[in-house]
Design a protein around this nucleic acid. Structure first.
Length: 560
RNA sequence: GCUCCCUUCGUCUAUCGGUUAGGACGCGAGAUUUUCAUUCUUGAAAGAGGGGUUCGAUUCCCCUAGGGAGCGCCA
């Protein structure tokens, strides 16, 4: 019995929140999932949606993803639009999982969506609703439609329907199926065939969708066939379920992707069949990859979990996503508070936009620089457990796609500290070395990082295995002159009274003046010896953070 | 094939018929600098094409081209 399965499913969602969910920097929230269908059906949660404390003008919106296994980045933007709209108007933002397709549904897939939304900071009101759990109600509405004469039983077989569609296609007619059972006497029904229930849609005239984004869109009714609302096995179809749920939940504004626009015309006919008020609609354009094609795995990142893994900050991702298709004058950096205040569905553009990682990076870099050192440290600690380095290295991404910072980090870890296998091991190693050292370096680190992964990359010298594996550019820096310089520096560093960046810089500058060697000629070999790279945070910071013993050891190795 | 939608710098966008077509990312140049980055200054870069309407079109209308979405007993 499915019901048991689902109680178990939601039980999973009740497990303790992962670390990154409970971080104090995130708004307080709880994972509010409907815990069992029994509860949902009997406790009239649905009824509550309709008679909430809101004034009449307060909108009710919803985000209704199907459990595909992750929260798609485009879906995330749709959710963001909904959330902002509700927030800005004292409305409610509801969440419904469209899990009527039993094959696609599984607990992990639902959890991934809830996690994604929560991470992005998009909290929903009330419990997440399972659409599947409401099947009885959907069936009841179908029967009501039948009783009203707005629907009929159709005994056409799938083969028959296919054939009709093929024929239509061959003749260049619209591929719609006009059921003969619309006007046929049900008494003629073939024995033993379980019928579907079809909506008796109007054949003449047109159906109009007044959309906040698309404007007034007209569909000739002759091009819309009678859609099936109940399958032959008695289960409701998506189009019926959406309408019934949106109505029952008191949804006033349906904000979703344009891919639903044609559905909306048909759904309008269901509303009309039931004499229900049609909600307001806003069909937002799609997000494409950088090449203009539909966003796919090859583009490198589809789910918000990928963006978390790369080290994007929720606030930055929100700021970036909202600017895809919406703007507020020349404003680029907008606080969440401002977004809530300014956002409106009437300002959304109609055309699809391309995802641009460079711009996201810039925004993220801005928010990183603006974050406090403590917060960044906390964010890093939250992110690390999600990183599987060997998995990241094995990702099959289009070589033309922009490199993922978490993948680059994975490669750097393999090069500098091959003994570290995953994010947890890296966190452990950093803890062993001392998080305080990361903190000390943070001001230098954060102005060089576009993502948290880059931030960690900058700190990798702290945990590198010795002797250091110098990369090619670093190796070239250690020539004979460099070895002489390094050797000369060793006794000075050994004698240094205070081991701080400032003191060490003064020491090196003194050496520079005494010998006439340019600072760059000293700093670069030092950098290479200390970090194994030609690029790093400021060498004096590196020296300080590494500590006298470790720093001297690394210098001695290169001084030969 | 049918229905619907879209088209301003490379990208995201501003423009409520009159602008030297603005901003941001990216890119180029310069300054700062121990590398990289940050920061600052600065430069190049756009109305798909063709018709109308109008004193005047990026803006309104039509056509063409290009692009997208939908056309399931999927959601």
């Amino acid at each position: 019995m499915p019901r048991t399965v689902h109680a178990a499913q939601f039980h999973r969602c009740r497990q303790p929140l992962p670390l990154w969910l409970s971080h104090p920097a995130l708004p307080p929230l709880t994972l509010r999932v409907v815990l069992c269908y029994e509860h949902l059906i009997k406790s009239s949660i649905i009824g509550n949606f309709r008679e909430g404390p809101m004034s009449k003008a307060a909108p009710v919106v919803r985000f209704a993803p199907s459990p595909t296994g992750y929260l798609h980045i485009g879906g995330a933007r749709t959710a963001l639009f909904n959330w902002l709209y509700a927030q800005g108007r004292g409305g409610r933002f509801l969440l419904r999982i469209e899990d009527t397709d039993r094959e696609r549904n599984n607990p992990a897939a639902v959890a991934a969506i809830l996690d994604g939304l929560t991470w992005l900071g998009l909290t929903w009101d009330g419990d997440a609703v399972s659409q599947f759990a409401r099947a009885d109600r959907h069936r009841a509405v179908a029967n009501d439609l039948l009783a009203r004469g707005a629907a009929y039983h159709c005994y056409a077989s799938p083969a028959e329907i296919d054939a009709a569609r093929e024929a239509a296609k061959a003749e260049g007619r619209p591929q719609i199926f006009l059921s003969p059972w619309r006007d046929r006497d049900p008494k003629e029904a073939p024995a033993g065939v379980k019928p579907t229930v079809r909506l008796k849609a109007p054949r003449d005239g047109e159906t109009i969708v007044n959309d906040h984004v698309q404007g007034r869109v007209t569909f000739p009714n002759k091009d819309l066939d009678d859609l099936i609302i109940l399958r032959s096995d008695g289960n409701p179809t998506y189009n019926l379920a959406v309408v019934v749920d949106d109505h029952d939940m008191g949804v006033t504004h349906v904000v979703r992707g344009v891919d639903h626009l044609t559905n909306t015309a048909r759904q309008t006919q269901i509303y009309q069949g039931m004499s229900w008020d049609v909600p307001e609609f806003a069909h937002v354009p799609l997000i494409h990859g950088a090449d203009g094609a539909k966003l796919s795995k090859r583009h490198g990142a589809q789910g918000v979990e990928d963006y978390r893994s790369m080290g994007y900050l929720p606030v930055a991702l929100r700021n970036y996503l909202v600017r895809l298709g919406w703007s507020h004058g020349d404003d680029e950096i907008m606080s969440t508070q401002q977004l809530i205040e300014w956002f409106d569905i009437d300002g959304i553009n109609k055309s699809a936009s391309r995802f641009d990682f460079k711009k996201l990076d810039d925004l993220n870099g801005h928010y990183i620089r603006q974050s406090s050192d403590e917060e960044l440290l906390a964010r890093i600690k939250d992110m690390l457990p999600h990183l599987d380095f060997s998995g990241l290295r094995a990702l099959d991404i289009d070589p033309k796609a922009p490199p993922r910072s978490d993948v680059t980090l994975a490669h750097e870890v393999a090069a500098l500290a091959p003994s570290i296998v995953d994010g947890n091991a890296l966190a452990a190693r950093l803890a062993h070395v001392g998080w305080d050292k990361v903190s000390t370096a943070m001001p230098a680190l954060k102005e060089r990082a576009k993502t948290l992964a880059e931030l960690v990359m900058g700190a990798l010298f702290l945990v590198a295995d010795t002797p250091l594996a110098l990369d090619e550019k670093a190796r070239k820096l250690i020539d004979n002159d460099a070895r002489t310089t390094l050797s000369a520096l060793i006794p000075r560093f050994e004698k240094a009274e205070t081991w701080t960046a400032d003191a060490l810089e003064a020491e090196v500058r003194a050496y520079s003046e005494e010998t006439g060697a340019k600072l760059g000629k000293i700093a670069q070999p030092l950098r290479a010896a200390l970090t194994g790279r030609a690029v790093s945070p400021p060498v004096f910071t590196v020296l300080e953070v590494l500590g006298r013993a470790e720093a001297l050891q690394r210098i001695r190795i290169c001084a030969g």
